[in-house]
Nucleic acid binder design. Sequence first.
DNA 1: TTATTCATTGAATATTTATTCAATTATAGC
DNA 2: GCTATAATTGAATAAATATTCAATGAATAA
Lengths: 196, 196
Amino acid sequence: METRKEQKERRRQEILYAALELFVSKGYAATKITDIAKRAGMSTGLMFHYFESKEKLYEALIQMGLEGTAYPGAQNCDHAIDFFVNFTEALFGYMKEQPVMAKFFVLMAEAQRSEATPEPIREIAMRVNVIEQFVPIIEWGQREGTIKEGSPIMLSNAFWCSVQGIAERYATNQEIDLPKAEWIVDIVRRKQGDGL
Amino acid sequence: METRKEQKERRRQEILYAALELFVSKGYAATKITDIAKRAGMSTGLMFHYFESKEKLYEALIQMGLEGTAYPGAQNCDHAIDFFVNFTEALFGYMKEQPVMAKFFVLMAEAQRSEATPEPIREIAMRVNVIEQFVPIIEWGQREGTIKEGSPIMLSNAFWCSVQGIAERYATNQEIDLPKAEWIVDIVRRKQGDGL
DNA sequence: TTATTCATTGAATATTTATTCAATTATAGC
DNA sequence: GCTATAATTGAATAAATATTCAATGAATAA
């Protein structure tokens, strides 16, 4: 038998999941509270028993997205390029097993990008800043010769935007499989025989 | 002196441009008709003199986006990979000179992806289907050895999603320059010495 | 100059969407 | 079983947003 506490928690999760799917497929602004309630299988009134507003519900999801964001460092890699390979393979693998992760990914990206995101929420979403984390790894790889020459911030940005573009499509449409991680890593990989 | 007809056309363009910027930076649903009017420097009432509804205004932009979409074929290329290089360089170059193009790019992508897009508009946006156009070129490149092995549709998808991810960031934030076209082409490029 | 047509405004109205709340039903503890 | 507490509903209300329209001003044609 399910206790009251368990039931409450389950309901909460049901709402969060329904909202996540809708925010990702339609965007936050276009998602109606009634849509969320319908998808979660409850009345609209009940939603407000669990979340005081649409915005607070959004905030709860963004907070979850932030907490779930624990990307690995570059430990245990012989070469900088290995970090990108491991990272991308892990990310794509996880997205395939847990499509919810791809959805969180896209949710965070929208919150960061859109000027319509309520300021307190945007502030939370902005705490994830992967692009800057890549910069020192790229610099290391350029020194050792496994990563292309070029502005580290631009390379980091190109790599990450590509991953985001791919995740964005995958989150709403799994018909086309995710690409091989190596393909995307080739954005930053130095070509064999490219002289220093 | 400006004739009435010219003035009318200019006003129309002002509205379209203001709407384009807002739809891209906030998304269609989050953009208020009053925001558009304010940015275009006119009253809300006047907007309805030019466009009968917010949705028709959106449709006009999507129609423009569709008509502006004339991507080059693979003529005049010795190798399939050259097509991707030329294509990407042309696209990025154009985006830099005419940032409005990056905005249209993102507008079309949102219309295609979002389940909140009104059906008639989505139908128009969906007429742009670049991914399928790339497939035969990738197949050609795989035969001649300039393009990686792997599912052509997956490669095409990886390339295009990456371009979209990059355009999405660039459209709203030109602080970070666009990457080198070659970096992105490396997603599909076959590595030197990779045996057939 | 005068009449006519078009551009323009912003307040009023209509519509959509978020939120509240009084009433009802189910559950848990006694 | 009885009582207290929590879950749930859906209709009512509030708030936000799109759209209309009567009135005004400016440009053009006669």
